[in-house]
């Protein structure tokens, strides 16, 4: 096992497996976010369900491990890759041969990580440690997460931040999605095209979903 992890492909395996896990988490996250459109009660109830003991006690550590593996191993690979060409070329022309996203995954990932810190302090930190309002639904006291979230989405620069982050995440996914399958060996000449199409569609759904919801609340705030 240790020789497996020591090998470049072993580390890449961890980056791709954790990446796919995070990719599937994005779908769950977006699904939960859609409840925002259903109004205060629907969102508060789903948020309450997500925060119940058995969901959160499984999800939180798994997500933390997923993020850590993804960040640690991709950083390690990126840093060690820096030393493989001590003498740089005078000219490099890759504009037609590779995608911009594929060449800048580390930067894109870094931008997403910066956003993640702000995002967690906006919501997760507030819900865990902040002063939250409670509303009673059918005898159960539930945190008013809806008001917290929608209040943030009335601040234009916060919304701008969320839209920009969805864009960076989209570019990261555009390469990351198919790249993960390639690294796992689940890829051949036929599936290459299919994975590309699925990856693009998935990226569009995720990017559009995560940017349109904040935009919707911002526009609603200024028009009503």
């Amino acid at each position: 096992m240790s020789s497996f992890i020591n090998a470049s492909i072993g580390k890449k395996f961890l980056v791709s497996i954790s990446g796919l896990f995070l990719i599937s988490f994005l779908a769950v996250h977006l699904f939960v976010n859609l409840f925002l459109l259903g109004g205060q009660e629907s969102y508060n109830l789903i948020a309450h369900f997500m925060a119940t003991d058995y969901v959160i006690s499984v999800m939180e550590p798994m997500l933390a491990i997923g993020f850590l593996l993804h960040i640690i191993y991709s950083s390690y690979l990126t840093i060690t890759n820096q030393s493989t060409r001590p003498h740089k070329y005078k000219i490099v022309d890759q504009s037609d041969t590779t995608s911009w996203a594929s060449r800048n995954m580390f930067v894109l990932g870094g931008l997403v990580l910066i956003f993640l810190v702000i995002h967690l302090s906006n919501f997760w930190f507030q819900m865990q440690f902040g002063e939250m309002e409670y509303i009673e639904y059918g005898g159960v006291m539930v945190q008013d997460a809806y008001s917290l979230v929608t209040a943030k989405f009335t601040i234009w620069w916060q919304v701008l931040l969320y839209v920009a982050a969805a864009g960076f995440l989209g570019l990261h996914l555009l390469h990351g999605f198919q790249s993960a399958f390639l690294t796992l060996g689940l890829y051949n000449k036929i599936w290459r095209q299919r994975l590309m199409v699925i990856g693009i569609l998935y990226t569009i759904v995720i990017t559009a979903g995560f940017s349109l919801i904040p935009l919707y609340f911002l526009i609603a705030h200024y028009t009503t």
């Binding site: 470049s8 493989t84 060409r85």
Partner: peptide
Amino acid sequence: DELGFGSCTNTTA
């Protein structure tokens, strides 16, 4: 790996 080649990031260059 031992000879100092880098790790592939699937850029397809």
